[in-house]
Write a protein that binds this DNA or RNA. Structure first.
Length: 406
DNA sequence: TCTGGGGTCCTAGGACCC
DNA sequence: TCTGGGGTCCTAGGACCC
């Protein structure tokens, strides 16, 4: 991982790039007859809606029924996850070609730090304009870009500017931009938190900012309270971080309400385990914690997890753990009925990494020389040119050492 | 025609260790 | 024998995001 320089910025040089109505736009790009039409991706629940559909009030995560009430003429298409994944890769290639400092947030958005590129590529605004043109020409999709001094403001800016827009937040006008915005614009404020805030008559960012920290913590909890307090005061020191890796890989399937035949759940689980372990192996990761996810007929949810003694991507090992977790839930499933089955593998590490533990008693940190010597020893022994994740494990320092090809 | 599919981060209690 | 402080790991659940 590489973190961009964390000096206090004075110029707006962080870009937040966000693909517009991503899944629906890919569908319209690939099927000309869908262009200009209200398009919904996903029938049961709306995964994405084209802007033509959004004009009727359709929103992501609505049920199919609600969406069709609002927009009966909408064309519904099934999701094509692989097409979206390919389109995402093509867009990220353009990002990576723009600056080495790219931090992906999800399949359709990323932060780009263009602070050091003035001499080579021009101002952030010029860079963003070219980026939008390139993504349109080379991938055939629209992106919206927000530009600001901090990540948070850049993301807010892109949200305000979409669709197909570009907005710069002037470093001299940040509070004027921020304070009138509705609280929902704050990162981490969803329905639940927004309701809590609105219940005490707080509706704008400025009103949240004027609240004492302790009051805010009392309303929404410690972690959320501190975060919101900082963001509402326009404090966001986070840098663009390159090379972040996903920390879980999972898959799930909605099952509908119809009664399940004997053995049906086992077969579905088997399919999900196959899919997830295949993706693990493809990305050269192994995982240690198996999380099985359940949703019941009454739409309550539960998870059951089990941590294996060692990380693995082995189908039969993970399937065995899943079977036991499914069995432990069998009485509840029999009683309530099941409508969703899912699996996540977490606690991920690199499949080719060697886990080492170095006793602290053999290390001294006063000037770092002993630590360096120990790490040199590791490099010699394993022929590795880089040391991966380091963490403390009891009285040892744990190291994850990627085994690189010679 | 009621309810995707992929993720992240935080909290809190209990077990366990030194 | 009793008390305790400090820490990690595991499990389960909840909020939030796209």
């Amino acid at each position: 991982m590489f973190v961009s320089t964390s000096y206090e910025r004075t110029t707006a040089s962080i870009l937040h790039a966000d693909l517009d109505a991503f899944y629906a736009s890919v569908e319209q790009r690939d099927a000309p007859e869908l262009r200009g039409q209200p398009v919904l991706v996903g029938g049961g629940v709306v995964l994405a809606a084209s802007y033509e559909a959004k004009a009727f009030g359709v929103r992501t995560a609505m049920t199919g029924g609600q969406a069709r009430d609002l927009c009966p003429q909408a064309i519904v298409v099934p999701p094509r996850m692989e097409a979206y994944s390919d389109a995402s890769k093509a867009v990220f290639d353009v990002f990576d070609d723009t600056t080495p400092l790219v931090e992906g947030l999800s399949i359709d958005e990323a932060f780009l730090d263009v602070g050091g590129l003035a001499r080579i590529s021009g101002t952030p605004q010029q860079i963003a304009t070219r980026l939008r043109e390139r993504v349109a020409e080379e991938v055939g999709l629209n992106i919206t870009v927000g530009i600001a001094r901090t990540k948070f403001l850049a993301k807010v800016a892109s949200g305000v500017a979409k669709p197909d827009g570009l907005l710069v937040v002037d470093p001299n006008g940040e509070l004027e931009f921020l304070r009138p915005l509705p609280v929902e614009r704050l990162w981490g404020v969803g329905n639940v938190t927004a309701e809590k805030l609105r219940a005490v008559e707080l509706s704008t960012v400025g009103e949240v900012a004027d609240l004492p920290l302790d009051t805010l913590i009392g309303l929404v909890g410690v972690a959320t309270g501190r975060k919101l307090h900082a963001l509402a005061h326009n404090r966001d020191p986070r840098s663009v971080v390159v090379g972040k890796r996903r920390s879980s890989i999972g898959s799930q399937r909605a099952l509908g309400r119809k009664p399940k035949k004997p053995g049906e759940l086992d077969a579905i689980l088997r399919g999900i385990v196959d899919r997830v372990t295949h993706r693990l192996r493809q990305s050269d990761r192994v995982g240690r914690t198996v999380v099985v996810r359940f949703r019941f007929d009454d739409y309550t949810r539960s998870t059951r997890s089990y941590t294996l003694p060692e990380s693995t991507a082995d189908t039969s090992l993970i399937l065995g753990a899943c079977d036991r977790l499914l069995d432990s839930m069998a009485p509840t499933i029999a009683e309530k009925g099941i409508t969703l089955l899912g699996l996540s593998i977490t606690n991920l590490s690199d499949a080719d990494a060697v886990q080492l533990a170095l006793p602290f008693s053999e290390l001294a940190f006063s000037d770092g020389t002993e630590l360096d010597a120990a790490l040199d020893g590791v490099r010699d022994k394993f022929g590795s040119s880089s040391i991966g994740r380091a963490n403390t494990v009891g009285r040892d320092m744990g190291l994850s050492v990627p085994m690189l090809p010679d």
